[in-house]
Design a protein around this nucleic acid. Structure first.
Lengths: 154, 154
DNA sequence: AACAATTTAGTTGTACACGATTAATTCAAT
DNA sequence: ATTGAATTAATCGTGTACAACTAAATTGTT
């Protein structure tokens, strides 16, 4: 018996994640326009506002991004005055990412703006905790599959 | 009262969508490696296997992608022999995207491969329909917000 | 018919995302 | 101490995304 059609629900689920992710991206793009921050830049700043300094590697493991993505992104944040990048003195091979005074000053303004925009959504029909759980369940499945053989060969 | 921290659940939800979308992307990247198709290319082919020919505009409204994304993507699919792009004769301004014989021949192989990989996931703890509903609920909220004023002004 | 408005696809520029590679530094083990 | 392995960030190449713009074709209005 051959499969002549893809499994509809999985397809729909994947496409839903794909679409929702893009929509959230636009949402933050709009919300953060006053600060000229994209969503990836924003979550980078969020991580740094929580813990700083961090090395590129540490940031990457928080955000699941590698240096190929982070290095240019961090250069843009640096150029816009949010962060500084300095080689660590003890370990020349790593780079410490630090917040600027500007970033510390603007933090609460950014938070307030994001919260104001989020308040526009009235997520009445959404059970956050359950939804988050289900998404993490799916992600765990996907992580486990990467370990297996079938998907790796070819 | 000022907001000095972002609303945690919304942040987590957005980041979960962002991460899950990337993971699904890798999953399909691996699954479709034998066919040299990326996920966006795959969903484009899915749409065409269901209905073809379609104009670039029609494809775009199915996939929520504009010509800036689709034109180069379609050129790649054309170069790899999956589709042809021909100006419509009645309406010179639109381009018909057609499947090649190769695409028709390979369809079931692609479906089978995707299904085999999807079968590796045993989504025991996931209620598909409910999860899909919740995601669409969130997307509807995001769509409604784009209409509003606060988010539009810079 | 003439011309403005609209539609369609393509182009350009910016910004991720990531695999693969490179270069520099540090560690380890003899 | 020397050399081989591992770690870290940067770089390069490919492929999305999308806003803004352009060019061509079509439609609407006068």
């Amino acid at each position: 018996m051959t499969n002549t059609t893809p499994r509809l629900l999985d397809e729909q689920l994947c496409f839903a994640f794909y679409s929702a992710s893009k929509k959230f991206n636009h949402f933050y793009q709009d919300a953060l326009k006053p600060f000229h921050l994209t969503y990836p830049q924003y979550i980078t700043m969020l991580a740094l506002w929580e813990t700083s300094p961090m090395t590129v590697r540490e940031l990457g493991s928080h955000l699941n991004l590698d240096s190929g993505t982070l290095t240019p992104l961090l250069k843009r944040l640096e150029k816009q005055g949010w962060i500084t990048r300095t080689r660590s003195e003890q370990y020349e091979r790593q780079v410490n990412v630090n917040l600027t005074d500007y970033a510390l000053e603007e933090r609460d303004n950014v938070y307030a703006r994001v919260n104001d925009c989020i308040d526009l959504m009235k997520m009445t029909g959404v059970d956050y905790d359950h939804l988050l759980n289900q998404i993490h369940e799916v992600m765990d499945e996907l992580d486990q599959i990467r370990q297996k053989d079938l998907i790796k060969e070819a």
